[in-house]
């Protein structure tokens, strides 16, 4: 299974992961549209990104969410009706919903952000 490991203690809060992500997948630099979210926390920074647990698969009424051959949990947008149950029930709240998108989105473990990260706070793993 491919997934993105995070080391928040190394994070410097530069947000380059977020900008890279939104640029890659939504063709615009907008942190809101990033599939990884970094925020300030008491001890520094918190990183919220999907761990590919796949719980959302069971909540989807249209079978739009599936695990692909690499173990990554993906949303088939053509089947998604934007009911947001996956987002509401995500144990880590890593299924994101924003006003400008009618449908939710999530990390698909592409690893591009980990290459941009200057502090090695992100690592693409394959179990």
């Amino acid at each position: 299974m491919k997934w993105l490991a995070t080391y928040p203690e190394r994070c410097v809060g530069c947000e380059s992961c977020m900008l890279t992500c939104s640029k890659t997948w939504f063709k615009e630099e907008d942190k809101e549209l990033s599939r990884i979210q970094v925020s300030s926390s008491e001890s520094g920074y918190a990183i919220n990104v999907c761990n590919q647990c796949g719980k959302c698969i069971d909540y989807c009424p249209t079978l739009a969410i599936k695990r692909d051959n690499s173990g990554v949990v993906r949303i088939d947008e053509s089947k998604c009706v934007g009911c947001l149950m996956c987002a509401g029930f995500c144990p880590t709240e890593s299924m994101f919903v924003v006003e400008k998108r009618e449908k939710p989105f999530k990390c698909i473990a592409c690893g591009i952000c980990s290459k941009e990260c200057p502090s090695e706070a992100l690592e693409l793993k394959q179990d």
Binding site: C80, V81, G82, C83, L84, M85, A87, G88, F89, V97, E99, E102, K103
Partner: peptide
Amino acid sequence: VGPVSNNPADISVLQRTGLKLHK
């Protein structure tokens, strides 16, 4: 059928309110 089939005046309220109740 999809999230805006009703062509609502403001989808963000539907998203926000729905998500809140799901949680």
